[in-house]
Design a protein around this nucleic acid. Structure first.
Lengths: 329, 329
DNA sequence: ATGCAGTGTGTAAACGGTTACACAAATGAC
DNA sequence: GTCATTTGTGTAACCGTTTACACACTGCAT
């Protein structure tokens, strides 16, 4: 019963043709008589034959595998995009391999492992991996790398994100509401995207002659948002906390309410970033600097399709964030 | 610069050995002089050589790829387990391919595609795919299938989950608190696991001479929890809603509070299932029938390792759920 | 009849590794 | 010094496809 999968040679014998003809029956546009093809497909169905994708990949130099480098699977701020991307890839018959690793060295190891599988594309969702590392690891092979970090390199296509206008809108509203002392709660210390996001808000404040009064660093998780907000509110008299993502914002909101007894938006304003679905839930109703996830994934797919079609070198797309209003600011 | 990856034959020439020796240098236990191996590894590093995993898989009949069939990536109730499993697989140098598809026919197509990649294992997290389909699609190849559904089949190992004791505990508490009229809000109509979970609670009620007064079906998402709870509370005078998962429970709690003005646990009791991290957040603080995710993934890995080690046929493991207390019931 | 384009099929060589087998050299036992 | 064993390496076949090339055949214009 542990029957080995039937091979094209065996099927060829059964159908009374050569294995080359079997192969042709499964390639849409190849010189083959339509009667022969129909007969082969019938026999194939009967014996449950399917061409072996591994062998095909070896020959083709095209694996149809795509490596997705992500920070985490559980974290909702990336999950929505991951989900969309996976669907889009699958629709193009591309199979996503997930690379997910907290530790830096392990991650490099993992990327090296994936590169031996001759993946056709690499999408780096994580801002924890340096683009230079990614290029070094994948440079001997074909894949184009799609990432946020705009590295000037012939192998890297990137998607730039601009949230400065939306940050300005949000700060405008908060200042109008009378808030005066702002804190920024970063996702991580080393993250490239986090620095960028912070700059949008810092610049928006600077334009009004204001500055950040306090700062803290978390890990993009709820608990860190909660804990850092408690410390922050004890340390500095701030009336606004801008958070690195929505999950930390929810943590900060809970901390303010539970530990300090402060409510949004009157006592304190809380701002998230990402615009995940959960932020709009009735119990959260977060004001957040939001990215259009569908548009983002459209952009990723556009870059991948460009590369598939062997259009020239890398390319870059810029997306603009919008403000999404809730009751927290 | 689009330099092709160097092959073992080329490296062999550079190192003055045969390609067989190159291969041996990269296999931990093979007859090779240690001086030769060191020299080869040095040259390999210099030229950035790594054995091609696709070619290796073709020869080995072992791809080190694992297909993960999931309902969704974004949904937190599965995400935590997915995350853990991915880490564990990666630690064993196994690469996870994610198959994620809402539509039934597409999902079968996708599974067929993955099966052509000669995956070594298949883990079916989704209860939306019938085990019989999975067996049919993967039966010509080696993989063992790990799933929840206890199908008696020599190719399927399964993990059974028993939450009856925990459900009993939870019902006990709720009844003691004076609640009398119970509703069950299912995740989906067709889900196998959902029927099982419902039965745990229905049995616990039956033991006390009680029955479910109302039922509804959602889709495991927040919005469906919210919407169905509103309809349910208008339709029937219930004082307890047991939900198919935590996310729907949060939706139901929000609906009760926002639309009906009912608070937990006094006006209404809400029970979730899964025990996701978010359920314990301060703003949720859900009472939930919880599964130990780490233990669950331990079990999955045990089944995979059994199969890797070519131990006999399939195997089955049973896990017990526990009650996790919050302020909603 | 002759030549030529077009069609359908088979043969054999890739693709990039692994490994059974063969064989030479080194080692050790007597 | 002989013989058996062990160790290290090369040769060649194989894993299951695809595809360049060759060839036979058809149909059609000359």
């Amino acid at each position: 019963m542990n029957k080995r999968r039937i091979t094209s040679k065996e099927l060829a014998k059964l159908a009374g043709v050569s294995s080359a003809t079997i192969s042709r029956a499964f390639s849409p546009d190849s010189r083959i008589g339509s009667a022969t093809r129909d007969r082969i497909l019938a026999v194939a169905r009967e014996y449950g034959y399917q061409p072996n994708a591994i062998a095909r990949s070896l020959n083709n130099q095209r694996s149809r595998l795509v490596a997705l480098v992500v920070n985490a699977i559980g974290n909702p701020c990336e999950a929505e995009e991951q989900q969309l991307l996976v669907h889009r890839l699958q629709a193009r018959q591309l199979l996503p391999i997930i690379l997910c690793c907290a530790d830096h060295d392990d991650r490099l190891q993992l990327m090296r492992l994936a590169s031996t599988y001759q993946v056709d594309h690499v999408v780096v969702f994580s801002d924890m991996v340096s683009m230079q590392d990614a290029v070094d690891i994948f440079h001997t092979t074909k894949p184009i790398i799609v990432s946020f970090e705009p590295l000037e390199n012939e192998k890297v296509s990137s998607i730039r994100i601009d949230g400065s206008a939306a940050a300005d809108e949000i700060i405008d509203k908060i200042v109008t509401d009378g808030k005066k002392r702002f804190a920024y709660l970063s996702g991580t210390k080393s993250s490239w995207i986090d620095k960028l996001r912070r700059k949008w808000f810092a610049d928006a404040l600077a334009r009004r002659g204001l500055t950040l009064q306090a700062e803290a660093f978390g890990d993009y998780g709820y608990d860190s948002g909660f804990k850092e907000a408690v410390l922050l509110l004890h340390r500095a008299k701030v009336d606004t906390i801008i958070c690195g993502n929505d999950v930390m914002a929810i943590g900060a909101r809970d901390a303010a309410r539970r530990v300090l007894g402060k409510n949004t938006p009157d006592d304190i304003a809380i701002v998230g970033q990402d615009g995940i679905a959960m932020a709009a839930w009735d119990c959260n109703d977060l004001t957040t600097l939001s990215l259009d996830h569908a548009a983002f994934i459209d952009a990723v797919m556009e870059l991948i399709e460009r590369h598939d079609a062997e259009l020239e070198g890398p390319h870059s797309i810029t997306l603009t964030c919008t403000a999404r209003w809730g009751s927290t600011a």
